[in-house]
Design a protein around this nucleic acid. Structure first.
Length: 153
DNA sequence: GCCAACGTTGGC
DNA sequence: GCCAACGTTGGC
C-alpha cells in the first residue's frame, strides 16, 4: 500500500464536497499533467491512502484523508466536448488521461498548514514543501505519512 | 491580483 | 531537437 497527496482547490472541490457525495466517493478527474497521469494510471492502487490538500486558499494545507477505491481508468471528461477538461487528442481507443475514484475517510479537526509542513525538519524532502512544485499528485513516504498523522492530533 | 516557477507548444 | 513565447499553478 502506498501513500499520496492530492491537491484540490476548496472552491472547486474541497474535502467537504467529497464528504457530501453519494457514497462519499468521487472520481478524481481533470488531471492534465503527464507525470501525475502516469501515477494515476500505473501506481495508485485500491486501498492506497491519500492526504487531501487544499491549495490556492488561505491557509493552504492538509485537511484530511481519503482512500483509493478504484485504480486508474480513462478520464472521460477528456472525451466530453462540453467539459472544461475536454482534450480533442484523447480518444476512447487511445485515452490520454486517467483518473481514480477516491472515498472520503476523515477530516482533521484542524488543518495542517503548509507552513507547519515546511517547518517540520522530517518533512523537508516532501514534494509539496519544495519550492515551485506544482504537481497536483505527489507520493508520500510511509514515514512522512506517520509524521503528518501525528501532527493532526 | 501579482508573479515566480515550470510545463507545453510550435516555429525554425 | 532547440528554445522563445505562452499558459497555468498556487503561494503570497
Amino acid at each position: 500500500m502506498a501513500y499520496w497527496l492530492f491537491k484540490s482547490e476548496p472552491e472547486t472541490f474541497g474535502i467537504d464536497a467529497l464528504a457530501k457525495m453519494p457514497k462519499q466517493t468521487e472520481h478524481w478527474d481533470g488531471v492534465r499533467n503527464y507525470q501525475a497521469r502516469n501515477m494515476l494510471r500505473d501506481q495508485i492502487k485500491v486501498r492506497d491512502k491519500i492526504f487531501f490538500y487544499h491549495s490556492n486558499c488561505n491557509p493552504p494545507g492538509i485537511v484530511g484523508i481519503a482512500r483509493v477505491v478504484r485504480s486508474g481508468y480513462p478520464d472521460d471528461s477528456a472525451l466530453n466536448p462540453e467539459s472544461d477538461y475536454y482534450d480533442p487528442k484523447s480518444t476512447p481507443e487511445n485515452p490520454r488521461w486517467f483518473m481514480v475514484d477516491v472515498k472520503f475517510e476523515k477530516k482533521f479537526k484542524h488543518i495542517i498548514t503548509l507552513d507547519e509542513l515546511k517547518n517540520h525538519p522530517e518533512l523537508s524532502n516532501m514534494a509539496v514543501t519544495r519550492q515551485g512544485n506544482r504537481l497536483s499528485i505527489t507520493p508520500v513516504s510511509a514515514h512522512e505519512w506517520k509524521v503528518i498523522l501525528s501532527m493532526a492530533k
